[in-house]
């Protein structure tokens, strides 16, 4: 369980690390704790997995990964684990999740996001995943418009 102080620290950290020489000191002063206490807390969050990653979230479009597609797969229930693990090993796959199928409208139960230079690349990657896994029923969903993209802010709604 997170304490009240934990939540306050999360609220402060999610505003971004200040661009000053001692950013943890700057945040700690606002929180009324010491720099050492804050550093220890951030380390602890990182070790416990509360912080998945301490780094920069980068817009990959700006770095040359220009195309991505959500590829959804219809996988027999008994093969989900094996196929999920297999697809996760591909470098071009950034995300691989199992989700419930909602037949008949939505028969797909495994979701991957694949990245390439072009849409054609993404189709080829999907075809390779299909050959490797033997899962023939799949579909690519390209995004045609971004309607919203924002970073999550925790513990701000009351």
């Amino acid at each position: 369980m997170l304490s009240q102080l934990d939540k306050e620290i999360i609220r402060a950290l999610q505003e971004g690390l200040p661009l000053v020489s001692r950013p943890f000191l700057a945040l700690a002063e606002k929180l009324g704790i010491t720099e050492d206490e804050l550093l220890a807390k951030v380390q602890d969050f990182a070790e416990r997995g509360v912080i998945r990653r301490f780094g920069a979230a980068v817009r990959h479009q700006d770095l040359g990964f220009v195309s991505n597609a959500m590829v959804v797969w219809q996988v027999p229930e008994e093969r989900i684990e094996e196929v999920g693990r297999l697809m996760a090993t591909f470098d071009e796959v950034s995300h691989c999740y199992q989700r419930p199928a909602r037949p008949p409208d939505w028969p797909y139960n495994l979701f991957t996001v694949v990245h390439g230079q072009t849409p054609e690349d993404c189709r080829e990657i999907a075809a390779r995943l299909s050959r490797a896994s033997g899962i023939a029923s799949y579909r690519l969903l390209f995004s045609v418009a971004e309607l919203k993209k924002s970073s999550m802010k925790y513990f701000v709604e009351k």
């Binding site: 990964f65 996760a88 691989c96 999740y97 199992q98």
Partner: peptide, 25 residues
């Protein structure tokens, strides 16, 4: 009325150096 509601039941991979939704989980 028809909204597909698809919570992840299992996560096989979240690659850290792509930002596409990784902080959303």
């Amino acid at each position: 009325e028809d909204i597909l509601h698809l919570p992840a039941s299992r996560i096989f991979k979240i690659r850290v150096n792509f930002d596409l939704g990784e902080d959303e989980n």
